[in-house]
Design a protein around this nucleic acid. Structure first.
Lengths: 189, 189
DNA sequence: CAATACCGAATGAACATTCAATTTGGAGAG
DNA sequence: CTCTCCAAATTGAATGTTCATTCGGTATTG
C-alpha cells in the first residue's frame, strides 16, 4: 500500500515545513491540509489529533537521525575518534536540514514535549550512549551527566544549524571543523 | 505613579508564569488577565497587542540580566578570569530563574523573535561583547563568530537551566563548576 | 460488494481585541 | 478640609475570527 504511506508522508512533510516557517501557533490543521494537498478530514484518518501528529513527526525525525548516525558511525574506530565523528555527523546532518532543526528546537521547548517521549526516542541513540559511557569509564571524557553532554553536543549542533538557517552565521566546512574541535575540548578529560 | 507600574508588572509576571508553564499556544489573554488579577481589557491599556506584550517581556528579561551581569562583573580582572566569571554569573542567574529560562528558550525559537529585537537587546551586553573581542584579539580564545560563542555559553546556560527545572539533571554547585570549566575549554585558544 | 480512503462543509469552542460604561484618584476652587 | 470635576484607569460583555475536530456522504480498491 504505497500510496497510503505517500499521503501520510505528505502530511508529515507539510507539517514540518509549516512549523519550521510559522511555529506552532501559526500552523492550523486547515493549512497543513492545504500544504499537503489533502482534505482537512483526511489528516484525521492518519492521525488521532494535532498532538499525535506533532509527536509522530518528532519521533520520525529523531528516528531518521538515529538511523543515519548508526549507519555512518564507524564503531571500529577508537572512542575519541568515534566521538569526533559523531559530532561531525550531527552538525552536518542538522545544518543541511534547517526544517528539521527548527522543528526540533521548537518542539523540545514546547508543552508537547515530555520525558516519556524522550525516553522512547533515546533508544535510537544506542551507539552514541555506548560510546559516551565507554569514554567516561576510560577517563577519556569528563564525568558529566547525560543532559550536560547533550548540551555541549546535540544542543549546540541544532542551535547552530538554526542560526545558520536564519542567517546569523554561515557554517562553512572550516567553521564546522572548529566547532567540532570546541565541542570535543569541552568534553575531553 | 507607583500603582501603574505595579499593574503593568503584574501583567508581565503573569505572562511569564503562564508561558513558562503552558507555552505560547496554551496562554490566552483571558488567562493572563485572570492570573494577573486584572480584566482582559486592562492588558490593552498597557500593551498594544499580545505580540507587543511578549516582545516587551523578552526585552525586560534580557535587560535585567544585562544589568546583573554588568553589576556583578569585575572588569578589573584579567580577561580569562572575566570570561569564567561571566559564565558563572550566567549559569547561576538562569538556574535560579527557571521561568525566565523557559520563556527565553521558547521566545527565541518562536516567530515572535527577529533580528531587530536581538540587535536592540545586544546593547545590554556591552561588557560581554567587549571582553570577548579583547580575548579574541589577544589570542586567548578561539577566533569564532559571535553566534558560535553564544552557543557554547549563553545557549548552554539556558538549556541546562531548563533541563534542571524539568528534572532531567540537578545542577549542583560542583556540577556548575564543571560546566564552567567545559565551556571555557571549548572557547580557549 | 465490502472495506478502506477521502472529501469538505458544518460545528462549537476558544481566541484576541474592542468598546460603552463605570470607577478612581487627585488637582484645583471655595 | 471638602467639594467638583476630569482624565486616566478599569471593567467585562460583545464581536468577529480562527481553530481543531466531526460526520454524512462519495470515491476507490481489491
Amino acid at each position: 500500500m504505497d500510496h497510503i504511506e505517500d499521503k501520510r508522508t505528505a502530511i508529515l512533510n507539510a507539517t514540518l515545513r509549516l512549523i519550521a516557517k510559522n511555529g506552532f501557533h501559526g500552523t492550523a490543521m486547515a493549512k497543513v491540509a492545504k500544504e499537503a494537498g489533502v482534505s482537512a478530514g483526511s489528516i484525521y484518518h492518519y492521525f488521532d489529533s494535532k498532538d499525535t501528529l506533532m509527536v509522530e513527526l518528532y519521533k520520525d525525525i529523531k528516528r531518521h537521525f538515529g538511523e543515519t548516525l548508526t549507519a555512518q558511525l564507524d564503531q571500529t574506530l577508537p572512542v575519541p575518534q568515534q566521538i569526533r565523528q559523531m559530532l561531525a555527523i550531527m552538525l552536518r546532518y542538522y545544518i543541511h536540514r534547517p526544517l528539521e532543526s527548527a522543528f526540533l528546537e521548537q518542539f523540545t521547548r514546547s508543552p508537547y514535549f515530555n520525558p516519556n517521549i524522550e525516553a522512547e526516542v533515546m533508544r535510537y541513540y544506542a551507539p552514541l550512549v555506548t560510546a559516551m559511557e565507554i569514554a567516561q569509564r576510560d577517563m577519556i571524557i569528563k564525568n558529566l551527566p547525560g543532559p550536560v553532554i547533550m548540551a555541549f553536543t546535540f544542543d549546540v549542533a541544532t542551535s547552530l544549524a538554526q542560526k545558520h538557517a536564519a542567517g546569523y552565521v554561515t557554517m562553512t566546512d572550516d567553521l564546522i571543523e572548529k566547532v567540532i574541535e570546541a565541542s570535543w575540548e569541552a568534553l575531553r578529560q
